[in-house]
Simulated assay, not measured.
Amino acid sequence: MRGTTENVTFASSPAGATARVSTGMVCEATPCTFELPRDSQFSVVFSKPGYQQQQIFVGTHVPVGGGAALAGNILAGGIIGAAVDSSNGATLEHTPNPVFATLEPEAPQPAPVVERKRRRQQAVADSAQ
């Protein structure tokens, strides 16, 4: 029996990112794993200081083995057992799983115009000496 929940793993490169799941769960530092209902679809936002945030949608699907399990359930448990497993999500799996984010570094911010002007003035003064 597959059950109505599944472990979903969240990981990132670099490791140590925060992963906020739209269901309300928060992983303070990747990698981490949460047990989630098989019939839930959600999004997760990965964030880490110095890197751009990344959002990933996690859906569900019936795997090849899930269809076979459903057919076996019909034979062993009858139509009622198959209907229960179909209605409670026991035949579903999350995809992607694991959920992996490659975080891109934030672009460096250009120095403020005033700072560049001050540096230019200092360079001119230094060269005059």
Rank of each mutant, 00 (worst) to 15 (best):
S12P: 02
L70H: 10
S40Q: 11
F57T: 15
G24L: 06
Y51D: 03
G3M: 01
Q109L: 13
T30F: 03
G81C: 07
P14K: 05
V113A: 15
S127K: 09
S12D: 00
A111Y: 01
G89M: 01
E28A: 14
V99I: 06
L103K: 03
G72A: 13
G16N: 03
F46D: 00
P31I: 09
T95F: 11
G66R: 01
P31F: 03
P49F: 03
A19V: 05
G67D: 12
E104R: 13
A76F: 09
A15S: 13
C27R: 03
D39M: 13
A15Y: 04
T33F: 04
S86W: 11
I74W: 06
L103H: 09
S13D: 11
S12E: 00
G59K: 01
L92W: 02
Q53M: 13
E104M: 13
R118V: 11
E104A: 15
I79W: 10
R120T: 06
G50N: 08
L75F: 14
V45C: 07
A83S: 13
A111C: 02
A71C: 11
A90V: 02
S87F: 09
C27W: 02
L103Q: 03
D126C: 07
G16W: 01
H94L: 01
R118T: 14
G65K: 06
V58R: 00
A11G: 05
S86P: 01
S22R: 01
F42V: 00
H61V: 11
F10M: 06
Q129I: 11
H94M: 01
A90C: 12
A101S: 04
K117W: 05
F100E: 06
S40R: 13
G3W: 00
V26Q: 14
D126H: 11
V21A: 08
F100R: 10
S12C: 05
S86V: 09
D39Q: 15
A123S: 10
T91V: 11
S43N: 12
A69I: 04
Q53C: 13
T30E: 00
R2T: 12
F42T: 00
I56K: 05
N73Y: 04
G3P: 00
S47A: 14
P37A: 12
N73V: 09
C32F: 04
A19S: 08
C27P: 04
P37G: 12
A71Y: 08
G50I: 04
P105G: 05
P63K: 08
